[in-house]
Amino acid sequence: MSDQIIEFLQQLINGLSQGAIYALIALGYTMVFGILRFINFAHGDVYMLGAFAGFYTAPRLLQLFGGGPSFPGATAVLLVAMLACATIGIIIERLCYRPLRDQPRLTVLITAIGVSLFLENGGQYVFGADPKSFPEIITDRALEIPESWGALSALTITVGQVIVVGVTLFLLFALRTVVLHTRLGMAMRALSFNPLAASLMGVNTNIVISFTFGLGSALAGAAGILTSIQQPSIEPLMGVNAGLKAFVAAVLGGIGNIPGAALGGLLIGLLEAFVVGYVSPTYRDAIVFGVLILILLVKPSGLLGKTEREKV
């Protein structure tokens, strides 16, 4: 097998694990948009808070499971961060967005930017602006690929990458089950199609909206931990870039469309990896945001989104 193919597969693997992170964050953007028709720009910062929730709780949680990095310990950190973010997401909606429910969407959008700035600067104040080293909750090392695989043994696949992709797949499957097969999931879909009709069916829309924020924020929290396993340096502004990329991913997949967000995240991750590998790391962000402009020009409804007529 030629070196080019190995190189290609390597970029594919790198892109996949980065794309998984974007997919998890993008889901929160898209679910909230599906229900409230606004972009929660503070969502990327919830992802940052997930990483910090892990940072502060990991030492104690790992202690419960023997001290060092361990699989049960890492699972506990992941769950705690998800729970913390779900709570934060629900509180943000309750305090900042719900009072504006009947206001024009632009008002809510600007508020979301305000919340985002608050979390970023508040984060710098509370956690300190310097990057912090995320504790090792699982030993991230390269997997041994047996010689018998021939040329493939030249690939580098890390434990972290396998965990990121595995956990993401699991969470996507869990989310799918919740959305398609539970009563609240059905109410989410009904509400996103027609809030008025959903109210007439007896849906308490506030509960469904809180649930949606909780669900999306928990996924962002998971993304925060998964990132920190691979790149253990966290800081209060880490959500800005990741949040924007995930937003591009949500738009690429079709904002409001759940499978679209997952697909968009994956594609953006792959695109980044290939640009870094074949073009130049310098152009990574430029090309990703170029995609946003291109999508908005060519197919504003995104890859999987349906064209929606504005209701008057």
Binding site: R183, R189, A190, F193, M201, G202
Partner: peptide, 18 residues
């Protein structure tokens, strides 16, 4: 105002939501 994205059965289940 039926939920066009839901199946007929799901629409009926939405009616019985409470």
């Amino acid at each position: 105002m039926v939920f066009a994205n839901l199946t007929v059965l799901e629409n009926l289940r939405m009616g019985a939501y409470r």
